[in-house]
Amino acid sequence: MEENQLLALWESYDRKLSQNLVLNRQNAEEITKIKVKSLLSGMQPIKIFAIIVGIVWVGFLDLIVFNVWAYASPMFLFAIGFHILLTKLSIGVYLYQLVLIKLVDINNPILDTQEKIAKLKSSTIWITRLLFLQLPAWTVFYWTKDLFQNLHVFQISIMVGVALGMAYLGVWLFKNIRFENRDKKWFKFLLSGKEWDPMMKSADLLQQIEEAKKEG
């Protein structure tokens, strides 16, 4: 089909639509009475809630560290410190998302707006990556010198093996939970479902925006 045929086809469609489309004024008027803020306003409360809970949790853990610093085992301090650090980074991601929500303005050009929305949605993957990176911390926090002195070498081997396995798994997942791997079976097994679909679509959109900027 040639260009002029395409345009003529669309024009005839447009003409017929303008003759026949009906606006239900009563229903349209009801829209103007609905109390809702913006396209992304629904995302704000859960982010704010997560930040508040995160700050309270980290504050509580900081207090524990401060109080037990002098006599706690090095492994406990290492594990809790690692957990605190990653939780603080997660709070940072939520703050970044809140800033993006504030910056999104659907009156702005499509690419600019969609880039912010896509970054907002796809950045949730960072929370997941940080969550998995914490895996080894949960396997070593109870290690003490006394525990190792009282255990059989076989038991110690199992504990160390589990810790090393979790460390490897945590780092591997942190490195590999990326949108480039979204079609792999393990990725779909771990991260699939309705809540992940918008995030995957956002990653696609970010790629399209990058390509759109380069073309031309």
Partner: peptide, 11 residues
């Protein structure tokens, strides 16, 4: 609030 029904339609 409940959302109104169809707003723009083709008969």
């Amino acid at each position: 609030q409940p959302f109104p029904e169809e707003i723009i339609s083709l008969p």
